[in-house]
Measured scan of single mutants.
Amino acid sequence: QVLVIRIKIPNSGAVDWTVHSGPQLLFRDVLDVIGQVLPEATTTAFEYEDEDGDRITVRSDEEMKAMLSYYYSTVMEQQVNGQLIEPLQIFPRAC
């Protein structure tokens, strides 16, 4: 299952990153890619938005798994409803 992660860049749009092994993705892998997209920032975590629009911070593989399972459940709903699949949007955080 292909996963598209949209890395939101403060004040300048976003970069889409296509991942072919989504469920095996590790927290460190995401930080590495964010580091390539935002080389001047030191990113130690990132956030995503849940169904209520609240930002949830991801700082570990466990939290990463929770984010992915949340995302895959929303994708299934979108597929069932015949909607366009939205990329998983993440917001890098420099701490």
Results as ranks from 00 to 15, higher is better:
residue 95 C to G: 12
residue 51 E to S: 13
residue 41 A to G: 14
residue 36 Q to N: 09
residue 55 R to G: 02
residue 45 A to P: 01
residue 57 T to G: 04
residue 24 Q to V: 04
residue 44 T to N: 15
residue 93 R to D: 07
residue 89 Q to Y: 07
residue 59 R to Q: 14
residue 73 S to H: 10
residue 6 R to M: 03
residue 43 T to S: 12
residue 80 V to L: 11
residue 44 T to M: 12
residue 80 V to D: 13
residue 64 M to P: 01
residue 39 P to N: 07
residue 8 K to D: 06
residue 9 I to K: 14
residue 4 V to R: 15
residue 54 D to Q: 12
residue 91 F to A: 02
residue 23 P to T: 08
residue 59 R to G: 14
residue 44 T to F: 07
residue 78 Q to V: 07
residue 73 S to R: 12
residue 74 T to A: 11
residue 69 S to W: 05
residue 65 K to Q: 13
residue 26 L to N: 14
residue 5 I to A: 01
residue 51 E to R: 12
residue 21 S to E: 09
residue 70 Y to G: 07
residue 36 Q to K: 11
residue 56 I to Q: 10
residue 23 P to H: 15
residue 67 M to N: 01
residue 43 T to A: 11
residue 2 V to P: 05
residue 85 I to K: 12
residue 91 F to E: 01
residue 10 P to A: 06
residue 29 D to G: 01
residue 54 D to A: 13
residue 41 A to L: 15
residue 65 K to H: 09
residue 88 L to G: 03
residue 68 L to T: 03
residue 23 P to Q: 12
residue 68 L to F: 06
residue 83 Q to E: 11
residue 82 G to Q: 11
residue 49 E to I: 07
residue 62 E to Q: 11
residue 4 V to Q: 15
residue 2 V to W: 04
residue 10 P to I: 02
residue 72 Y to Q: 12
residue 77 E to N: 12
residue 76 M to A: 13
residue 74 T to S: 12
residue 80 V to M: 11
residue 7 I to N: 01
residue 54 D to P: 01
residue 59 R to I: 02
residue 17 W to S: 03
residue 35 G to D: 15
residue 53 G to M: 03
residue 83 Q to C: 08
residue 73 S to F: 05
residue 93 R to K: 07
residue 49 E to L: 08
residue 39 P to T: 04
residue 76 M to I: 12
residue 56 I to R: 09
residue 69 S to E: 12
residue 24 Q to A: 05
residue 24 Q to G: 09
residue 29 D to T: 09
residue 48 Y to M: 04
residue 7 I to D: 00
residue 78 Q to I: 04
residue 67 M to S: 01
residue 44 T to I: 05
residue 89 Q to F: 05
residue 72 Y to G: 07
residue 36 Q to R: 13
residue 54 D to I: 14
residue 63 E to D: 13
residue 86 E to Q: 12
residue 30 V to H: 00
residue 10 P to S: 08
residue 1 Q to A: 06
residue 5 I to Q: 03
residue 9 I to G: 10
residue 73 S to N: 13
residue 27 F to K: 05
residue 12 S to Y: 12
residue 32 D to S: 07
residue 15 V to M: 08
residue 33 V to C: 11
residue 71 Y to T: 02
residue 33 V to G: 06
residue 64 M to H: 06
residue 52 D to N: 15
residue 9 I to E: 05
residue 27 F to L: 07
residue 51 E to L: 11
residue 29 D to L: 01
residue 28 R to N: 12
residue 72 Y to D: 08
residue 12 S to I: 07
residue 12 S to F: 11
residue 2 V to R: 12
residue 56 I to V: 12
residue 34 I to C: 06
residue 19 V to N: 03
residue 81 N to T: 09
residue 70 Y to Q: 07
residue 85 I to Y: 15
residue 6 R to L: 01
residue 94 A to R: 09
residue 93 R to H: 15
residue 48 Y to N: 11
residue 42 T to K: 15
residue 23 P to V: 10
residue 5 I to W: 02
residue 76 M to Q: 12
residue 79 Q to W: 05
residue 57 T to N: 06
residue 89 Q to C: 14
residue 50 D to P: 04
residue 84 L to A: 14
residue 61 D to V: 00
residue 11 N to G: 13
residue 75 V to G: 07
residue 51 E to M: 13
residue 12 S to N: 15
residue 48 Y to K: 00
residue 20 H to D: 11
residue 75 V to I: 11
residue 84 L to V: 14
residue 24 Q to H: 09
residue 19 V to D: 02
residue 77 E to F: 08
residue 69 S to F: 06
residue 69 S to C: 08
residue 49 E to P: 02
residue 81 N to F: 09
residue 7 I to L: 05
residue 43 T to W: 11
residue 66 A to N: 13
residue 7 I to C: 01
residue 50 D to F: 01
residue 73 S to L: 06
residue 73 S to Y: 05
residue 77 E to S: 12
residue 75 V to D: 04
residue 95 C to Y: 10
residue 49 E to A: 06
residue 3 L to M: 08
residue 33 V to T: 07
residue 58 V to Q: 00
residue 74 T to C: 09
residue 82 G to H: 12
residue 36 Q to H: 05
residue 29 D to K: 06
residue 77 E to C: 10
residue 6 R to I: 02
residue 88 L to Q: 02
residue 9 I to L: 14
residue 36 Q to T: 06
residue 55 R to L: 08
residue 94 A to F: 15
residue 10 P to M: 03
residue 46 F to C: 01
residue 50 D to T: 12
residue 68 L to C: 03
residue 66 A to H: 13
residue 69 S to K: 12
residue 69 S to G: 10
residue 10 P to C: 03
residue 26 L to G: 12
residue 31 L to T: 08
residue 37 V to L: 13
residue 80 V to I: 12
residue 28 R to W: 04
residue 79 Q to A: 09
residue 50 D to S: 10
residue 38 L to Q: 10
residue 35 G to H: 11
residue 91 F to Q: 00
residue 93 R to E: 07
residue 7 I to R: 01
residue 8 K to H: 13
residue 50 D to E: 04
residue 74 T to E: 07
residue 77 E to K: 14
residue 30 V to G: 00
residue 86 E to A: 09
residue 95 C to D: 15
residue 49 E to T: 06
residue 71 Y to A: 03
residue 68 L to A: 01
residue 45 A to W: 06
residue 88 L to M: 04
residue 84 L to F: 10
residue 75 V to M: 11
residue 64 M to V: 14
residue 59 R to D: 15
residue 29 D to P: 02
residue 73 S to K: 08
residue 37 V to W: 09
residue 69 S to D: 15
residue 30 V to Q: 01
residue 90 I to Q: 06
residue 91 F to N: 03
residue 68 L to K: 04
residue 42 T to S: 12
residue 82 G to D: 08
residue 29 D to Q: 09
residue 58 V to C: 01
residue 6 R to P: 02
residue 6 R to K: 05
residue 72 Y to T: 10
residue 69 S to N: 13
residue 47 E to K: 02
residue 19 V to G: 01
residue 59 R to E: 08
residue 54 D to W: 05
residue 59 R to S: 10
residue 8 K to Y: 06
residue 1 Q to G: 15
residue 77 E to Y: 11
residue 50 D to G: 13
residue 25 L to K: 03
residue 33 V to M: 15
residue 11 N to F: 04
residue 17 W to K: 14
residue 22 G to P: 12
residue 74 T to D: 06
residue 79 Q to T: 12
residue 61 D to P: 01
residue 38 L to Y: 15
residue 77 E to W: 08
residue 51 E to A: 13
residue 50 D to C: 06
residue 32 D to H: 09
residue 30 V to M: 14
residue 40 E to C: 09
residue 70 Y to C: 05
residue 34 I to N: 05
residue 87 P to T: 00
residue 55 R to S: 02
residue 40 E to L: 06
residue 15 V to E: 03
residue 77 E to Q: 10
residue 31 L to R: 01
residue 90 I to K: 02
residue 10 P to D: 07
residue 49 E to H: 01
residue 71 Y to P: 02
residue 8 K to F: 06
residue 58 V to P: 00
residue 16 D to F: 02
residue 78 Q to R: 14
residue 34 I to K: 00
residue 14 A to F: 15
residue 74 T to Q: 12
residue 79 Q to Y: 07
residue 32 D to L: 05
residue 80 V to A: 13
residue 62 E to H: 10
residue 9 I to D: 05
residue 7 I to V: 06
residue 55 R to I: 04
residue 30 V to I: 06
residue 2 V to C: 08
residue 7 I to S: 01
residue 81 N to G: 10
residue 76 M to C: 14
residue 93 R to M: 13
residue 5 I to V: 09
residue 6 R to G: 03
residue 85 I to W: 07
residue 10 P to Q: 05
residue 62 E to N: 10
residue 40 E to Q: 07
residue 89 Q to V: 12
residue 12 S to D: 15
residue 53 G to T: 00
residue 94 A to I: 15
residue 44 T to P: 08
residue 91 F to T: 04
residue 82 G to Y: 05
residue 47 E to W: 03
residue 25 L to T: 15
residue 18 T to F: 00
residue 93 R to N: 09
residue 49 E to N: 08
residue 18 T to Q: 13
residue 59 R to Y: 08
residue 39 P to V: 02
residue 84 L to Q: 14
residue 64 M to I: 06
residue 79 Q to I: 08
residue 16 D to M: 00
residue 49 E to S: 06
residue 88 L to D: 00
residue 66 A to T: 15
residue 38 L to E: 02
residue 79 Q to G: 09
residue 91 F to S: 03
residue 84 L to Y: 11
residue 65 K to F: 05
residue 79 Q to R: 11
residue 72 Y to P: 01
residue 16 D to E: 07
residue 40 E to Y: 06
residue 53 G to C: 05
residue 75 V to Q: 10
residue 78 Q to K: 15
residue 74 T to M: 11
residue 10 P to E: 07
residue 71 Y to M: 01
residue 64 M to N: 04
residue 84 L to I: 13
residue 2 V to K: 12
residue 90 I to H: 01
residue 50 D to I: 10
residue 10 P to T: 04
residue 73 S to A: 09
residue 76 M to E: 15
residue 57 T to D: 04
residue 10 P to R: 04
residue 87 P to E: 01
residue 40 E to S: 10
residue 42 T to E: 09
residue 19 V to Q: 04
residue 16 D to S: 04
residue 11 N to R: 08
residue 53 G to V: 01
residue 27 F to G: 00
residue 78 Q to H: 13
residue 87 P to H: 02
residue 47 E to P: 01
residue 47 E to C: 07
residue 40 E to A: 08
residue 33 V to Q: 15
residue 89 Q to H: 13
residue 65 K to S: 11
residue 81 N to P: 12
